[in-house]
Design a protein around this nucleic acid. Structure first.
Length: 297
DNA sequence: CTCCAGGTCCAGA
DNA sequence: TCTGGACATGGA
């Protein structure tokens, strides 16, 4: 029997669903007929936007709407955050280009694992890797009739038991042992992703960095996109470029100086500022400078 | 063929 | 502490 679809609608200002789901914080959403299909936890989700109206559907028989609303941060007052940004022409330009870009609140393990795979990979390829992992090792989920299959993200326990060779055969490359050993550390209790949630920011970051393949950047991505830690400020190649060019007059400062600057200058909502600078750099600004991997056709 | 991608780790100054 | 190279793979 096909599961019935449950549905809720929301009226949300300044929310761009497509931009939010494609800007490089989550990797498993795909567009079909103007809607976005994805998975939250163990459940198939479809989200469709028409102006300020956002419509969410799920095949879950007893939907946890609170969890879904939390994932999308439906109730966040974005203006109260951007209003506290420093008065700054660069950030204002970035903000202008990122209207409606929201930070999600993703499941911790899926987010962490996805970013372990992200090392020196472009976003489309991270999408392929996470899709392969889910299809190969994830639980198959209920979907509406005549829809492509959907899979939960595989648990730490499952991936801990998977051989490195098997993971390499999916194209993970040198990331295979990182993912496997991190999964082992979590499944055997050495690291608790839930307990980390109650730690102060810097301690939480250190705790995540004890995992193999997890350095400051991936720890910050996880804290920002899964834990909602607004102090986290992931510095990747794009953000480093943005900070260097916009705030340090193109003289490349030491990593520690960049971190210290970002932590104080953008506080207390560095996370949002970071994501805007990242997107800004990857699109308009990066293209003008001819440094972007995004090419015109 | 070359260069680069939402990095991390390790060795050697 | 800081820097350079290795590490896999795919796309432009």
């Amino acid at each position: 029997m096909a599961p019935p679809i449950k549905r809720r609608s929301y009226s949300v200002r300044c929310y761009d669903v497509e931009l939010t789901l494609t800007c490089g914080q989550a990797f498993r959403w795909t567009s079909i007929d103007g809607a976005w299909i994805g998975v939250i936890g163990d459940h198939w989700i479809r989200i469709r936007q028409d102006g300020d109206d956002i419509n969410i559907e799920t095949t879950h028989t007893v939907p946890d709407w609170e969890a879904i609303e939390s994932y999308f941060q439906i109730h966040l007052d974005i203006d109260s955050i951007t209003a506290q940004f420093p008065a700054d022409q660069h950030l204002a330009q970035a903000l202008d280009m990122c209207r409606g870009l929201r930070l999600l609140r993703q499941p911790k393990w899926e987010c962490l694992a996805s970013f372990i795979l992200s090392s020196t990979k472009q976003i489309p390829h991270i999408q392929k890797l996470t899709a392969s992992l889910a299809k190969e090792f994830g639980q198959r989920l209920n979907v509406p009739p005549n829809h492509p299959p959907a899979y939960a993200f595989p648990s730490p326990e499952t991936l801990a038991k998977t051989s490195e060779d098997r993971l390499r055969s999916l194209g993970l490359g040198y990331r295979a042992p990182y993912l496997r050993e991190s999964a082992q550390a979590i499944s055997n209790g050495c690291v608790s992703l839930d307990k980390i949630a109650s730690l102060p920011y810097l301690q939480a970051r250190s705790a995540l960095e004890t995992l193999p393949g997890v350095g400051p950047k991936i720890a910050d991505c996880t804290l920002l996109f899964a834990y909602g830690e607004q102090q986290a400020f992931p510095i990747d190649v794009w953000v480093e470029r943005a900070l260097t060019e916009l705030y340090f007059s193109s003289k490349k400062p030491a990593r520690r100086r960049l971190e210290a600057f970002a932590a104080s200058y953008f506080a207390p909502f560095g996370g949002y500022a970071q994501q805007y600078l990242f997107h800004y750099m990857r699109t308009a600004h990066g293209r003008q400078r001819g440094q972007s991997p995004i090419r015109d056709h």
